[in-house]
Amino acid sequence: MLQWFADRVVYSLLGLEKGTRLAGALNFFIYDTIKILLLLVVIIYAVSIIRSFFPPEKTKKLLSHKREFFGNIAAALLGVVTPFCSCSAVPVFIGFVESGVPLGVTFSFLISSPMVNEVAIVLLLGIFGWKIAGIYVASGLAVAIAGGIIIGRLKLENQVEDYVYQIKLSDVELPDLTWKDRSDYAFGYVKDILKKVWPYIVVAIAIGGAIHGYAPENFLMKYAGRDNILAVPVAVLIGVPLYSNAAGIIPIVHALMEKGMAVGTVLAFMMAVTALSLPELIILRQVLRPKLIGIFVAIMAVAIVFTGYLFNAIL
């Protein structure tokens, strides 16, 4: 259906000749843009409805006094469905610690929540297909679980700022939501996200389309192919300062992959963009001492690079 529409616009309406580079790039751009925007609307709406059942206040109760391992698994999974933005990272962190969620379990949540987020899932699904999206989600959860367990084992509770332990939260009865409230919330959230990400997506798909249509086949093989051992760590280093632009990164990365960038390198890059972000680290500095932030970054970097090598080796 969408392909038919894109074909109509490019070949019939604009009268471009099939097989030319411009037609190829434009067709790709129209098809991808519409597909991604539709997917975003549908999936974010659905995810938001689910999320309305898991406010952070409830999630912290579910995770309170959970043990290592099962607690980490639960935290990583809840991280996917609990609404979270880096602007509320500090209150959420304090709330978790205050209600007795172990530090390692809290970290599993903090890692999985931004990394396995709905925008990333939609874009991976729409552009790369379910297999890569599935691998990304599964390895993201694995990194979150493992990272949380390691941080828990290191006994770093003394590296949390003291004032965090002095804050007392009241127990709150959250008001009941009607289905209309949930639907309004979901609809509002779809609007927010679309407003925020559509320019990135359109620009990124345009760049992706240009690379798709104009760059020579396999020109990246030499630099970012699976045989270049440095590609994964370099991709992670580039990914860290790029923040909240999963929307703007994935379409470009897809085109790069077509031209020879290895799958594991692509995954590692994506993870670095979403899970390790400079602004979030700065925000977390309000509650974590520098040593703990350093350890957190080091563990994440190692885990992400490892994931990259793993998938470059097996895929």
Partner: peptide
């Protein structure tokens, strides 16, 4: 925190 809210 006195109101028990962690998501603003």
């Amino acid at each position: 925190a006195k109101y028990g809210i962690i998501s603003t």
